[in-house]
């Protein structure tokens, strides 16, 4: 039954995909997670990520990169493993990037979200 649903969704070209506990909307760089099923605190952190990491006015990156890293376990630019250690390293890197608008508290919240997303992506 599940296979039929996935096949029908695929044939209809619906831009949504499910990965364990995560639902991905859109395609390519426009991909993003559907936060509607997240716990309330993670929904707040996801909204924070949309503002701080994917703000086109600030020349940041698309959320598609985050989706790629979380769902494949490989960081899309460096092609290195994207695990919790790497997630923290990226949080620190972005916090230390001048004018990123990400202070230590924000970096902490974003890393917590990444830990949650990684856990959900690998949930059975």
């Amino acid at each position: 039954m599940t296979r039929k649903v996935v096949l029908i969704a695929f044939l209809c070209g619906l831009p949504a995909a499910a990965l364990a506990g995560l639902t991905v909307l859109g395609q390519g760089d426009a991909r993003r997670f559907d936060p509607s099923g997240f716990p309330p605190d993670m929904q707040k952190r996801y909204a924070l990520m949309e503002v701080k990491c994917a703000n086109p006015a600030e020349g940041c990156h698309s959320l598609g990169r985050v989706v790629e890293a979380v769902t494949t376990g490989i960081a899309p630019i460096s092609h290195t493993p994207f695990d919790k250690k790497a997630a923290k390293m990226y949080g620190i890197k972005m916090m230390r990037k001048p004018d990123s608008g990400i202070d230590k508290k924000t970096a902490r919240e974003l890393v917590r979200l990444l830990y949650f997303l990684l856990d959900e992506a690998r949930a059975p």
Partner: peptide
Amino acid sequence: GTDLDGNEPEIDLEADPSVWD
């Protein structure tokens, strides 16, 4: 800061902000 191999420094994100960050 970033070391000469390009690795970010180990920073405790739970700690208060420090100038060394």
